[in-house]
Nucleic acid binder design. Structure first.
Lengths: 204, 204
DNA sequence: GCCAATTATACGATTTATGTATAAATTTAC
DNA sequence: GTAAATTTATACATAAATCGTATAATTGGC
């Protein structure tokens, strides 16, 4: 029997290391702003106030750092997603929150990061696609649950639903709409209203 | 006598050339987004759908393009400035418009462009500083005119006035203020009101 | 076909980025 | 304080990107 319990104190993982997190954070900041291609390891080190040697101690190379950042992003998003799903609110409110989450994220990351990622590295490309698929399937499940609960009409295709969510997300940043409804929140409410009920007058 | 009038049709200057403007525009777009350092001549050419050779036909090098873009920016701003000054509106309205102009510009350009410019090339640095000084002096003149017209109090220093305008510009993007007054326009009105009249109650 | 403008390609030269080795400096624990 | 561990500074060989130009091929208008 293995009663020889190893009572080592919690291994000081990289995550708790000051230099490590500095590199991760400045790396993320720069990548979001400029994309990975345009940022060098040395620049990250300089701005993180960490020497290049320590960088290569914690990360195999720039690619490795990128992957870790990506993983972190996806993990956080997933966590927030599941948190919303567990909340005791109506399905409609969940959709609202999830779209809001999506919007937050897409603002936070800037487009540059994910865009450029797909046209550079094959490994990362695969990684992102895998994760995107996971998210996609999650949303499909969500959609089906909505149908089961009777909030979404049965004759609607999941793919169409997904497309609509994408569209709403983009519409919020549409320049023409911005001039029509300048305030972000109001714009969002209008779009959401349209998304749920279309243009028809209130149903009796 | 020189009645041999040369009736050449208006020389097709570079400005009217399709390729030239394509390079200028995509160059500007990329520079604003990433700064000059992070953008290569080849990238500009690719995205402008122009060959590298044609680039070097119109521009000596990347620096040359940058200078031309900068010149264009300053010229446009100056033009708009003088246009406002000529308008038959009150001095107060002029200040309002000029601050608005300043804000528009600083949004348009993104910070990256001008920032990185100052830490790379000496020639461009000098250029920007020269132009900035011109703009500064223009604003000082404007300020003095305001004092003469009795809109700005006499005991105020021009440097302080300039600093305040800078501050207002920055405040508009202040994150905390954004949560207090989310709407841009409303935020602007509040700041402008504060700028002109302080926090005091209406004067009788 | 001719002309002008543009492009594709290739190239050497230069600059920048990468990843590692080494020794010095700093921090941490004892 | 001192020893050990961590981090840094520096230098370096290598690889990759960028630059600016030369040349020949291509395009589009007349």
């Amino acid at each position: 029997m293995s009663t020889t319990v190893e009572m080592k104190k919690e291994k000081t993982t990289d995550e708790q290391n000051e230099k490590y997190t500095a590199l991760l954070e400045t790396g993320q900041k720069l990548f979001f702003k400029f994309g990975t291609k345009r940022v060098s390891v040395e620049e990250i080190c300089q701005k993180a106030d960490v020497s290049k040697m320590t960088f290569y101690k914690y990360f195999k190379d720039k690619n490795d750092l990128t992957k870790i950042i990506l993983q972190k992003i996806f993990d956080e998003a997933m966590q927030q997603y599941h948190k919303i799903m567990k909340e005791k609110i109506s399905f409609t409110e969940k959709i609202e929150k999830i779209i809001k989450l999506k919007l937050e994220k897409s603002n936070e990351y800037g487009d540059v990061f994910l865009e450029e990622l797909l046209e550079t590295n094959e490994e990362l490309k695969a990684f992102v696609q895998k994760k995107s698929l996971e998210a996609y399937n999650l949303n499909i499940d969500f959609f089906k649950k909505g149908q089961k609960e009777g909030v979404i009409r049965k004759n609607m295709k999941p793919e169409f639903f997904m497309l609509l969510i994408e569209d709403i997300t983009e519409m919020l940043h549409n320049e023409k709409l911005k001039t029509i409804i300048p305030d972000v929140h109001e714009r969002f409410e209008e779009l959401l209203n349209y998304f749920f009920y279309g243009i028809a007058n209130e149903r009796s």
